[in-house]
Design a protein around this nucleic acid. Structure first.
Lengths: 245, 245
DNA sequence: ACAAAAGTGTTCGAGTTACACCCATGT
DNA sequence: ACATGGGTGTAACTCGAACACTTTTGT
């Protein structure tokens, strides 16, 4: 039996996936499509984030985890609640009104937005009932509702956090090369980094651990693998009182 | 005529005020009091944050600004929406249940929490119908609902932000001395700072402008006054791509 | 003149930047 | 053997940490 939903409170999920092959930070979106009953012409044809209403008996974090699980099958993914979108007119664009009439939902819904960080290859897109697709964060399709704003704010928050929290490792496999780490920073921050200085700097970090292992199956010189130790990070981490303003 | 409220969505406001005299970071609280009709003994006697429900036709930010205005009379105060509290049991403590029965509100209310930054002396406490009081953030009284959690999370966020955004100036008067600036950092971060290094570092910042003015009415050597220029800050500010992890 | 707080300099080590070539490996 | 990308060193500079005395002013 379905739990009761809270009709005016929802959670929307920005799922960021890093694709190490294309070196691209992507967002997972689903299609929103509705056609006219008279002439079969599309009335609404764009993309949206996944989201759902909160149930009466669950926390907001649980709602977010549930939505992600349903979309990707994944648990224990890094998630961050970053902003509430509650403008009374946020679902009042032309297409959204058509859509709302069809779906019969409450247009004064506030949504609590989360973003998730994972690797694109962790998500199986085939046979997924939501039929989600990855889009590069810098090349998004037409988006419904206020979801363009939501993605932009999520991306801004991610960029900022990446500079002073070790969340980058959420976007990488457990074992990664320095090159991959650097590529990931470069895609997120949108700038180039000198590889010599980058290596030197990150090699001094005790929580980045050199493994006794190299890449296999590459067609050129295989590179050293590293891992991130959350335990070591949390032990070492005292708040640095450097004021960076 | 009163606009319609949304019964299950509220905003709670953590009002931080810095008191330059006592060098204390304070929180503005209001009393929550209810006594038994039979024997006049207090049933509920503690403090809470101010908050109120969102109106049907306003944004969440407007709700927050409205609540602050009603409590303090102030507009244009720095505010930050920092977290949503939506646990289904968040209003289910013993005293909260008694209180809820009396006030007849929806116990599955989610609240969007904001904090505000201002100077204690800006708020007039006399003849204020809410009868608010300042309490040092490190020495809070007994708090109702989940408001202790809310304050702690607000404080954690403030500490973090103070390290890399110029929000400290929201807690200071327009004209301030270096000593006051240093005191403010010290109270927020909870550590001591070497005054020579602190001065040298902040003097290099173009957006901290030395005024042609000194303190007046002090009983010892008067000190130089400075101001913060938001304009200069925003012009200079490019994201530093230093990775501080 | 004195008390109080304001204001100032130096040294040392660590971190940051800029910059270009050698090396290991798979083919 | 060679092409590819992995991996490395150095010098100049800036920044941060540690540390204590002199100066200015009001009383």
């Amino acid at each position: 039996m379905m739990p009761l939903i809270i009709p005016n409170i929802s959670v929307d999920c920005v799922v960021f996936g890093f694709d190490a092959n294309t070196k691209s930070l992507n967002v997972l979106l689903i299609k929103r499509y509705l056609e006219s009953k008279e002439n079969n012409k599309p009335l609404v044809d764009d993309y949206v984030l996944t989201g759902y209403h909160t149930f009466e008996n669950e926390t907001i974090d649980e709602t977010a985890a549930r939505v992600l699980k349903e979309l990707t099958g994944l648990d224990n993914v890094y998630k961050k609640q970053f902003k509430v979108f509650g403008d009374p007119n946020r679902l009042m664009n032309e297409k959204d009104v058509i859509w709302a009439k069809n779906e019969n939902f409450n247009q004064r819904t506030i949504t609590i937005a989360y973003y998730f960080l994972l690797k694109t290859q962790e998500v199986t897109l085939e046979n997924n009932q939501h039929n989600p697709q990855w889009f590069p964060v810098n090349d998004l399709p037409e988006l419904g509702f206020d979801h363009k704003d939501i993605i932009n704010e999520a991306y801004a928050d991610l960029k900022e956090k990446a500079l002073y929290k070790p969340i980058i490792f959420e976007l990488l496999p457990d074992k990664f090369t320095f090159k991959e780490l650097q590529n990931t920073y470069e895609s997120i921050l949108g700038n180039e980094i000198d590889n010599r200085n980058f290596r030197r700097k990150l090699l001094t970090k005790k929580y980045i651990i050199e493994l006794d292992e190299k890449q296999v199956g590459v067609s050129k010189r295989p590179s050293q693998l590293f891992m991130f130790s959350k335990d070591v990070y949390q032990k070492i981490y005292k708040e640095t009182f450097l004021i960076h303003i």
